[in-house]
Design a binder for these strands. Structure first.
Lengths: 248, 248
DNA sequence: GGCTTTGTGTAACGCCCTGTAACAGACCCC
DNA sequence: GGGGTCTGTTACAGGGCGTTACACAAAGCC
């Protein structure tokens, strides 16, 4: 049950990147690495990242811009690393929207402490009295093959408009597929994205969950047309998905 | 019970003002802005400001003088921003009567922490009658799924307009859900937000309270459509919530 | 084309999480 | 101090979900 937080370290300097990765790994985190923006965005799509450690100064798209991009549609915690001498003061600090920042060179223990602090803060009280705006009515809706998935209410309606009685696990799995349509997702990825854990050697739980989900959304579960099996690869959602704007 | 604190940022530098506004807004406060003394006084008259962040050095009437003017007839908390190099100690100690001050350039997180600290300290004191403190007529109203929750009177009306006889605990729990609609709230969070304590190992009190609440507001408590269970996660209010203006 | 190997579908079982009734202590109001 | 209400605790029932086992299908091999 207890899931170990999954960190993403984004830094163009390979040495720093791998050192940080190893260090954080040794201290009980799962760690993924990215050298620049594109890799970072891909990791965010494919993995269940809990926190990003982001270098401010990078070739190509810099940390500031990446930070803003992430902030557009998520509250994912971000810790910024700023090179010595960069002007960190008020403007940068305010502008960047990071949850914390750390000037280089830093003591890795200090980074550890801040990561833990930010994670704790996020886990403990995400619901500040009226965070980001009093009337935050939740996330987007997705439509596919006549179905409608409402992330705010965690509900799914079938083409007739009836609410599908999905269990929590089934909903999580479906959401995960719907957010990455027409892409093969390995069991490992699905497990990471839905349960936040890595697969045990003979882990078949995803298969079973897929089966249960198919029974509820496939016209003919024996001949699935929505959730397809990719032998040796995983599963994919075959339908086209449109994302409706957030709840009005 | 709790309302989102309303801050007033007073600074003549437009960039700093708006950046601060955005930053504080992102962290769960309602924020108003003023560029100089006149605007500030008007905001204080028209809005229920809980705390002022005030730049010391401003053209026209400076922060010090404004601070004293406010202090004449209220104990409204004030945090002063002082430009680097200004001689703070003496002035602070002797004259300004602010609750805290922060030398520029400052880490925005530091400002956040001080704002929270000052608000907490201030909330602990008994409210003075006549102070520009909490709204006289109580807080906002929320509507969801035909229900109306009035934070002023701590009452809830069902879609027929009849008043629901909720107990104090049930009301607190419902308010807590209504203020964070369409988000999964863990038992721990709910317990913290409603009772201000953390869960004991086998604490099931939230489950029981949720059950009692469901009996009163769900059409079919066996198939809850308003308060959903997220297995392994907690509960969420599935309905959309609109916040009506504060009670007149 | 048969046989083997490997991977997937699924039924069955059991643990653990959640719903809920019953009870008892705390608190409140005469 | 007594009756009523509210709320936390406990116990039990039901259901979700991970595990396991087995059947079957697909790919590999000769």
């Amino acid at each position: 049950m207890e899931r170990t937080p999954h960190l993403l370290v984004v830094d163009d300097d390979r040495e720093i990147r791998t050192l940080l990765g190893r260090f954080l790994g040794q201290h009980g985190f799962r760690v993924s690495l990215a050298a620049e923006g594109r890799e970072m965005m891909r990791a965010l799509e494919e993995k269940a990242i809990d926190l990003v450690v982001l270098d401010l100064m990078m070739p190509g798209e810099d940390g500031l811009s990446l930070c803003r991009r992430v902030r557009v549609d998520s509250a994912l915690p971000i810790i910024m690393l700023t090179a010595a001498g960069e002007d960190i003061d008020r403007i940068v600090g305010l502008e960047m929207g990071a949850d914390d920042y750390l000037p280089k060179p830093f003591n890795p223990r200090e980074l550890l402490a801040r990561i833990r602090a930010v994670l704790r803060r996020h886990a403990a009280l995400p619901p500040l009295p009226g965070e980001a705006g009093p009337d935050e009515n939740g996330g987007p809706r997705y439509r596919f093959a006549g179905f409608e998935l409402d992330t705010g209410g965690r509900t799914v309606r079938d083409p007739d408009g009836a609410e599908l009685p999905l269990t929590a696990g089934e909903y999580d799995l479906l959401l995960c597929l719907v957010q990455r349509p027409r892409r093969v997702l390995s069991r490992d990825q699905l497990l990471d994205l839905t349960r936040g854990r890595t697969a045990a050697p003979f882990d078949r739980s995803i298969d079973v969950q897929i089966g249960r989900l198919r029974k509820k959304i496939e016209a003919d579960p024996k001949e699935p047309s929505l959730i397809k099996t990719v032998r040796g690869g995983g599963y994919l959602l075959a339908a086209e998905v449109t994302r409706a704007g957030d709840t009005q």
